[in-house]
Nucleic acid binder design. Structure first.
Lengths: 220, 220
DNA sequence: ATATACATGTCGAGG
DNA sequence: CCTCGACGTGTATAT
């Protein structure tokens, strides 16, 4: 890892063209080839290049190329404030709790939160237009598709489950098919669309959901 | 700007919970309150907090809080490799050129690339469910909606134009309405959905498109 | 390698 | 403030 703190001018050419007039920035050159340029404000890099890249340095000019896509990032260094290379090691991976996959797993263990009597047949059941999160049958035996969102559901989520329903309904033996979107919250337009297209909206509280699969929490 | 290079453990609690076991990272504390943690790989920070924040430091423990949202980021420092504060100045803003609007404008100038005889009536024509990129009539006089994508079109793009078509078709005088997605490339699932819902896929080459509106290139 | 969907997405425009 | 679509999206996962 190389950490360069310098007054410099930055140019990017690829999916679009950007230029950043001279100013002080912190630039990280990582060993995997990725480069990121941090300005003085904002959590995100103002410019970047994912690895793998080829980095050429010619005096005050640093050119980072990504051969795969033809993109290039150019750093014209005017004044170096610091330029240090560090030998660093890090074997850790980021552990995340609360991703969609996890929410989906929790719901799979607590189907009654969605609807009493709902039985899970398959998770991530593939169709030609995408995977159905939870492929189920309801208490009456009807095929029921559940689309899970970890954040507020918008109209696109409703459209997604409609798309799956249409695909599944191509098999006449499975019809009729119910469609449900399960999310902690719903945008008004998502509800309107769901109503119009006969899609059900089930709101769940992630905290309660965790409680449902942690029996210890509801002993008394 | 403070640049801390250290072996540390990281925790984030907010929209989800994450933990990153001890390892070497580069952490930037910016004067606007934003903080970002860079691992040894990847263009994006592995953890971050947008400003404004409150940073408390208590020995080896650094706690960054975002009162507005209740999020917090915790850095437990085990070993400091470098810890430097820089007084930096940067008044520049990022200049960009070449976005989707440009592609849309190019297509508007070269409608025959989409289909011979297609006439543009309006760009960004508003509907209740969003703006139609290119609102046209075809050679036969049929209303034709074109959704433009600068990059590969996925199923969601097809759904988008279907939604617009449904909205426009609410006016019986305009029916039937054709729907087209124009993109440099199409995901297989997008083609499947388009076929099923009677949406046409038109692939264009951005380079050729530029040529089409550059008469100089086709003088001979 | 390709295809697909997630993401603490972030960001900005428009109502 | 909310809603929605673009983004140089990047990134991981499964085929």
């Amino acid at each position: 890892m190389r950490v360069l703190v310098a007054r410099c001018e930055i140019g990017y050419s690829g999916r679009l063209e950007t230029r950043l007039a001279p100013g002080d920035r912190v630039i990280l050159f990582k060993d995997d080839g990725s480069v990121c340029v941090h300005a003085l404000k904002g959590a995100k890099p103002i410019n970047y290049m994912p690895g793998p890249t080829v980095v050429e340095e010619d005096g005050e000019l640093i050119r980072v190329r990504r051969p795969a896509s033809g993109e290039s990032l150019t750093v014209l260094v005017e004044q170096v404030h610091a330029d240090t290379r560090f030998a660093l090691t890090d074997g850790a991976e980021l552990e995340r709790a609360g991703r969609e996959k996890e929410i989906q797993a929790l719901l799979a263990e607590a189907m009654h939160v969605i609807e009493p009597g709902l039985r899970l047949l398959e998770r991530e059941r593939p169709t030609d237009v995408g995977p159905v999160d939870l492929f189920c049958r309801d208490a009456a035996g009807l095929v029921t598709l559940v689309e899970v969102k970890r954040v507020r559901a918008v109209a696109a989520a409703v459209e997604q489950v409609i798309r799956y329903r249409e695909q599944v309904e191509r098999d006449p033996s499975l019809r009729p098919v119910r469609a449900i979107v399960a999310a902690p919250d719903f945008a008004p337009q998502a509800r309107v669309l769901a109503e119009a297209r006969n899609v059900e909206c089930i709101a769940f509280d992630p905290a309660v959901l965790r409680g449902e699969v942690e029996p210890a929490l509801r002993l008394f």
